[in-house]
Design a protein around this nucleic acid. Structure first.
Lengths: 165, 165
DNA sequence: TGACAACACTTGTTGAAACAACTATTGTCG
DNA sequence: CGACAATAGTTGTTTCAACAAGTGTTGTCA
């Protein structure tokens, strides 16, 4: 069906409920903003998720983070933290060390190269966020954050670092 | 690094800018709500994206939709509408027909089985959306939709059906 | 009209995600 | 102590998404 102004009412999706509309708007907005992230991070051969992992490891400095805990702290859940860390380790961005007092756990640390990469990226990352959402005023941004928190609050696990943010 | 109340300030990610915080909150919220969708749709062996495609084709009834236009109308962009339609066609949920007056385009239609499936799902889908976001009041939902639209407005293509929603 | 670009898909290939099954180590309880 | 469950990670397999290249059809312009 071609786009016809006369029938444009059915050219855009009609929503079955306002809840559905909220979710679809959320999805669409995420998708558009994510495209901007993807484009920037791909220039450094990173996924947004990998960048986020590096940021978490960097924030934990000078300590390390256990593999499973990294998985729990990532923004979107990953059933497969191991292989993401594999890729980062192969590129020398993080290092693994099996702990002596509990040989089950592996402690992750960001490497000097990883820290250097984050430093190199810092400027353009901030620039990109500005392009993404800089057109919203501070009040609007606060309001949006508030509503997003409210929206997902019932769906956060307990014992999750995201509950209090 | 284990979770320590004394150092909880660095246990949760610190944000480099409010714009970054907005995006991370958006991502996180999308991820949590998406998990709910995935769980429901997987019971019907569908992805949310496939369900969305069915809904679009259903709304176009009794007309059809061209493959490329379906791709443009989907909520999140897909570089590969063909193979998604392949899967739906194999299950008999949609039908393809090459047009006679322009043999390049393929017109898609939802099949009776597809319509039946949507009908069967209608109840539980509404229920799920209720669980997802029913805890927000109408005013909050409207406000959230407004801010989300505002957030992505500069990043929508022209000639995109989502501009006016 | 005939070469060539544009269009609307389709197919091939590579890399990553999902889910489950597996290994090694440690806690626990009779 | 010893069996058994729980924990922390790893590996295997199948499926899906992304990017690029290919096919058939139509518009266009010298």
């Amino acid at each position: 069906m071609t786009y016809d102004p006369l029938t444009s009412a059915i050219a855009v999706p009609a929503f079955d409920s306002t809840e559905q509309e909220v979710f679809l708007q959320l999805w669409r907005t995420y998708d558009r903003l994510k495209a901007i992230e993807d484009e920037l991070f791909s220039q450094f051969d990173l996924t947004p998720q990998q960048y986020n992992a590096l940021r978490l490891l960097d924030a934990a400095q000078p300590g390390g983070v256990q593999t499973m805990e990294l998985g729990r702290r990532l923004i979107s859940r990953m059933p497969d933290t191991t292989r993401m860390v594999d890729r980062l380790e192969q590129r020398g961005l993080v290092s693994r060390r099996r702990l002596d007092d509990n040989r089950r756990v592996v402690e992750l640390r960001i490497s000097p190269q990883g820290q250097l990469l984050l430093k190199e990226m810092a400027g353009v990352v901030i620039e990109m966020h500005q392009r993404q959402l800089g057109h919203l005023g501070p009040r609007q941004q606060q309001q949006l954050v508030k509503l997003l928190r409210l929206a997902r609050q019932p769906h956060e696990d307990d014992q999750c670092d995201w509950l209090e943010t």
